[in-house]
Design a protein around this nucleic acid. Structure first.
Lengths: 345, 345
DNA sequence: CTGAAAGCGCTTACAG
DNA sequence: CTGAAAGCGCTTACAG
């Protein structure tokens, strides 16, 4: 990295002069245009870029706010993340907390490359969202210079906030069973974090334990189109299917065309529940409107900030985990939960 | 802001000792547990937080990458922004550029509060997305210590990349006209940046100049539900409407239920075109699938990075603007463009 | 028109 | 077990 000093040497002037010129104060300080031109050219040629730390130390004084860096995955989950971010920011704003939030994306499994030391040192605290298995291994094997909180991942080492994945999986099964459904199916995109496996397994397990047939599992990529195709295949291969759980809201929205084409009516012929992870509100006016297990991401965000506060000001405090509970929002695609003993064979 | 020095004074030890303790090196350096405890307590009580600039200057050495800070609005446009970010990141990755990207959200009209000096000084360059009118006034009246590039906003002062707003507005009108449509309507949420006004006005203007009736304008909030309701109202109040342009993709998706309820068929009774701003892919499998004016956000991102490169390494270069052209993607809701002179009365 | 020097807040090699 | 001192790369008040 080229410094002001090196430019000064190359240009045969003092660092002061270089600094002045680079900060556009040549006029003000009456630097000769010749010197200015020479220095600018040299700086450009040498590829000078200011060292932000040094600039900040001198100029900015101390930071106005505590900086939180959120590592997130910019893949199909970006939609959900969006709601989470806004939850974080609203929480900070509403409570007048002295925090500023910056986002840094990472690729699944590549967390260790994103968490470069210089980045970590340039924030007061870290939130890591949805790390994969291998990312977790990295985290568990590391020691960080800043407090770190996990979102959507269980851990003994770090404080964490997780959605109630077990209920996300079991609740749809219970609801379907309570309506006397017998032939469940589940449609999912590749699991991007372990919670998705828990959701899927708990759904399958609960279906079985409530006397339904074994749940058919269909996998898609994360596109609505792929879900539409998978749903068509399911309806063809397993025409007896009478209830489907979609592990992502977009997958359910993408599938609706399939039911329309097949003339399937809700909720008579079929019931649908999706994980309510989208912020779009399309499910409220789709045909049929979509019943969802609603994820209160805003509440998760609020808990994260709470944990954060604690860790920041009490470095010695032990890790804590919080589970955020979910709730069912019935719409046209599947009626409300009606627990009847006689339905649960 | 409390410093290590102050803690040292309060604890009656040297700054060295405090630094060691706060960096968890007590064992390693055999600090007495008593001293450690005392210092930690005092630090906690005084609310010490490390000055990141100073830490970085000493520890991190020079930054690994040039830091780009993107200011964006975390409102209903977040969906679109998502695609833009990923475009930026993919561009950087594919070209192996030495950039790292951090995101900072701001409220519309509140850009000046988000652009605190310390934040600006902690990055090498700035991208501002979708500033509002008043945000633009602020920008035009300011001088920033770092190169700044605008996304989706015209400017003489700054380099900028904009979508071809004029074509986004005129193209749907031309397509409708080419199919002999006569009664156009436009449904929009409140304009969040000036480009939306341009799109709306060009649509209205083009409709008129191609011999169609004056376009009906219906306003909604940004929710799909509100668009559904507005569409129902439009169909009731103006049953002669035979083509509708939705200024946002989600609005069109939300409206589809209205057509289903009214038994309206595509494209016979009605044609629909939306601004293709969503990344979800639902439009590809909705009923009907949605024709869109596709916004190549990835391309915009690539141009931004190009401009950025130039400004970073050639501080003296003058501002430049780029217009990104859009293209029409016909699907079920509206057929392809068929320019016939005799259709354009 | 230009430069020598102090200092921002921290870390760490070195000395004791 | 602890501290004095140097230095990270920059900016700026001051001197000339």
């Amino acid at each position: 990295m080229v410094t002001i000093k090196e430019i000064a040497q190359a240009a045969n002037v003092s660092p002061t002069t270089v600094s002045l010129i680079l900060n556009r104060k040549s006029k003000e300080r009456k630097i000769s245009p010749l010197t200015e031109k020479r220095v600018l050219e040299i700086a450009e040629r040498m590829g000078y870029l200011p060292n932000l730390q040094a600039v900040g130390l001198k100029k900015a004084g101390s930071l106005f706010a505590h900086r939180i860096l959120i590592f997130w995955v910019a893949d199909s989950r970006a939609q959900v993340m969006m709601r989470f971010f806004r939850g974080i920011e609203e929480n900070i704003e509403n409570n007048h907390l002295p925090y500023e939030v910056l986002l840094q994306s990472y690729r699944p499994g590549q967390l260790q490359h994103a968490m470069r030391n210089e980045l970590l040192l340039s924030c007061h605290g870290i939130i890591v969202c949805n790390p994969s298995e291998s990312d977790m291994e990295f985290l568990d094997g590391s020691n960080f210079p800043r407090p770190l909180i996990l979102y959507n991942r269980y851990s003994d080492k770090y404080s964490c906030v997780v959605m109630d994945d077990r209920t996300i999986g079991s609740l749809p099964a219970e609801i379907f069973a309570s309506h006397g459904r017998k032939h469940p199916a589940l449609i999912t995109s590749p699991p991007t974090f372990n919670g998705m496996n828990i959701r899927q397994n708990l759904f399958a397990y609960t279906c079985q334990s409530l006397g339904m047939r074994e749940a058919e599992i269909y996998r898609t990529d994360s596109s609505p189109r792929s879900s539409y195709e998978a749903t068509l295949r399911l309806l063809q291969e397993r025409p007896e299917t009478d209830c489907i759980f979609y592990l992502r809201e977009e997958l359910a929205l993408g599938a609706l065309r399939a039911f329309l084409e097949k003339g399937i009516r809700f909720p008579n012929d079929m019931e649908l529940i999706a994980v309510g992870d989208s912020s779009l509100g399309i499910s409220e006016v789709s045909s049929p409107t979509l019943s969802v297990v609603h994820l209160p991401l805003e509440q998760a965000a609020s808990k994260i900030i709470g944990l954060f506060n604690r860790h920041l000001y009490t470095p010695s405090c032990p890790p804590a985990s919080t589970v955020v509970s979910v709730n069912y929002v019935p719409r046209e695609s599947c009626p409300a939960y009606t627990p009847h003993e006689d339905c649960i064979t």
